[in-house]
Design a protein around this nucleic acid. Sequence first.
DNA 1: CTGTTAGCGCTTTCAC
DNA 2: GTGAAAGCGCTAACAG
Lengths: 338, 338
Amino acid sequence: MGSTQRAGQGATIYSVAELAGVSIASVSRVLQGSTAVSETTRAKVLAAVDELNYVPLGAARSLAVRQHEAHGLVLPELTGPYYAELLLGFETRAAELGQSVVLVLTEGKRDLARTLRQLAARVDGLAVLGADSLPESALRGLRGSKPVILIAGDAQPDVEAVGAENERSARELTTHLFEHGRKRLLFVGDPDTAPDVRDRYRGFVAAHRAKRRKAAEPVRTAFREEDGVVFAQHVLAGEVAADALFCANDELALSVMHTLQDGGLDVPGDIAVVGWDDVMTARYVRPGLTTVRQPVRELGALVAERLHDRVGGHPAREGLQVLPTQVVLRSSCGCPPR
Amino acid sequence: MGSTQRAGQGATIYSVAELAGVSIASVSRVLQGSTAVSETTRAKVLAAVDELNYVPLGAARSLAVRQHEAHGLVLPELTGPYYAELLLGFETRAAELGQSVVLVLTEGKRDLARTLRQLAARVDGLAVLGADSLPESALRGLRGSKPVILIAGDAQPDVEAVGAENERSARELTTHLFEHGRKRLLFVGDPDTAPDVRDRYRGFVAAHRAKRRKAAEPVRTAFREEDGVVFAQHVLAGEVAADALFCANDELALSVMHTLQDGGLDVPGDIAVVGWDDVMTARYVRPGLTTVRQPVRELGALVAERLHDRVGGHPAREGLQVLPTQVVLRSSCGCPPR
DNA sequence: CTGTTAGCGCTTTCAC
DNA sequence: GTGAAAGCGCTAACAG
């Protein structure tokens, strides 16, 4: 056992103990910050630790304390600022809480169920975004063992969810469009793809109902740039009757607006366009894109924190926790520039 | 020991063995895909595994095989598409290779040295971006034990580096600006902040030298939007003499261009502006931003792959591996639109 | 205050 | 082909 420092590899608690002339228990105590250690011992250990550049092996420690001290974060992908910002908030808070973060991107991955199992085998809890689009079996089985928090998803009996407000802001933004005198609004994006888009559409519908109007069926397109281009071309071809487009996110809104303008339409003169997320580009385009800002970073931080609580034994909060969002008026909706 | 299934918690190899009526060794063999197992045993084990929903505990396995099966990725932050894309490429390839990825963001973190040590204690190798701006001690000590790969950094005797090409493309882009008849070019961004920016400036200088001109001193600004705005205001105030701005990245170029336009200048009429990275926004602004595209995702994938090789025992490649970049001409440089 | 020791759950010889 | 048993490096009682 007490083999000293294997060449090149990291020192072990044994090599440190040997060098310090104490037992491994003392080394552990010093490192754990236990009070029951004499100053002399502490000093000797610290010196040895420093000399050997010792750091306890994560796996060994995890096995002993039965905790991984790591959070798993599951995201669909990473395009656009939304996921990045969320990840940033999550990592920051997790680090403050002493947790490592293990990241898994689901898009394009084959055996998701297995991947998530493996992830669950090396973290204390999971935060999952886009759970609805995961294969049925993927989250099954994790539940009940590791705590799981759903991001921007629907809370369930035993799994809590955290998200940003959608319906109310969508309703507010829709109403704003009405106030600009727009009559034929179209919701661009498929409400069935994600709970938050669904809720935005609900707000869109609610605003119509309040005006005793009937909301049009949503344009069930995906959310990438290409999809926006395709849709905009339909508009340019005169196949779509609308004077305002409520896009499910900014990427979509931006590509739609851009294509429309290229096709000779005036935004917002001929048609208004609004988005969701307030990405950087939204400020740079002309006209500035009216959109809704979500506190994404804070959301990420909150998720990390809730997860940490859960791992620490706190019970799951019931229902969905919602962070406030904010409508950002620029001029693509019809408001005067600046 | 052989305690069956602890309530709620995950099954262990013991509970599986018990349920299957075999020894833990057999369970392990089946799971490791060892051939020396009878069909009967394999079937029994598999059934038990399935019923118990068993996944080997990561920490225990890591301890036994002396491998974490995880890669560490250290990034400064996560704004803009660059880091996200890199991370995407890295995670994807790492996952294909069966490695988890543990992410650490350095910006704003206090005890980086300790954070990195801890990271090194739970992964088999590290990929680090922005190593130069890390405190001296941070990477010290990891070296020699865990393999480290520097991203967009300078290769060193024992640490290999991977990056995208900079100098040559910068030279090409600068020359292009000359061909548009621009005379007074300015490099906006501080070459001392990062090796890749330094190399871009080198290319900028080289192009001047080829024309027997002397390159102006770089404008040593940071790379965020605010910094671009401040600089642009100097330009608008007539404090800067230039007819072309070579910005160190797109964020900077975009905010500069935007501010310039707001101030009444015509781009590229009065002044040309070019950037680096080819972010999404670059296509949407008017005029389209001329820039340089880097194969960032591929870079991330390459890093993961090299790291995996290194962990597997392959020796460090000497020098810097460079991926090709591509100048993207739009109209902010003076080229005709479309 | 300190050392001894028994695991944590898994892989892997080594006998049979 | 299978099981027993010895660790992997660390933490945490448990005795002194």
